[in-house]
Design a protein around this nucleic acid. Structure first.
Lengths: 99, 99
DNA sequence: TCGCAATATAAAAATATTTGAATATAGCGA
DNA sequence: TCGCTATATTCAAATATTTTTATATTGCGA
């Protein structure tokens, strides 16, 4: 990309998304709920992290439009809905499985 | 990715890379030096940011192996060398140009 | 409606990042 | 070697994020 274009383009939104992905717990959460919906408790057990921590991360992801929540009785199931995030997460998984 | 795999995999490194990309100035710097080497002064002028700020971001990018520096007289030219970063930056540019 | 399980929210404490200002270093040419 | 230009480093102040602890809400079934 040349200098003039760079000056005009604003990467603030993209940077915000990447920053949010740039946290180990959140990244794991995201990779976990790409191909399947999971509820908070399952995620917490799986990652061995306290419930409020997971809820707070999910709240942030929800606020940024990265995940969507759907209630199912007592449980609330989450899934990733952000296309760019899905794309990046899949690339990361592929890289990961290579090594 | 299923729950068991998720438990074992460690996304710490990937998260760190994403966190570093998740800053508007750094992301612009990176997009600017993917297809061309640029020196600190040019980047600073282009982004209209003070020189120490650019140098500090570049120092971080260098420390994480994302960019490489090459001296050329008084100038030091930088370029992105991290394959995953290049891949992500190109995706972002493409998204950007779509909208 | 009461109690319980699942999740959310709030607020403070701990930690990390970013910025700005000042100063240092490195290389070039006179 | 001196002065200049380009870049790097340092350190403290300002901000932002993360974690922890405590508490609140929501929905289900008895």
């Amino acid at each position: 990309m040349d200098l003039k274009k760079l000056k005009d383009l604003d990467f603030a939104e993209e940077a915000e998304i990447l920053k949010i992905l740039g946290h180990p717990t959140r990244l794991k959460i995201i990779c976990g709920i790409i191909e399947q919906d999971l509820c908070v408790g399952d995620i917490g057990n799986c990652l061995d992290e306290p419930q409020p921590k997971i809820s707070q991360h999910l709240a942030l992801l929800r606020a940024k439009g990265i995940v969507k929540a759907e209630r199912d009785g007592l449980n609330i199931k989450y899934r990733v809905v952000h296309p760019l995030v899905i794309k990046i997460a899949k690339i990361l998984e592929k890289e990961k499985l290579k090594s």
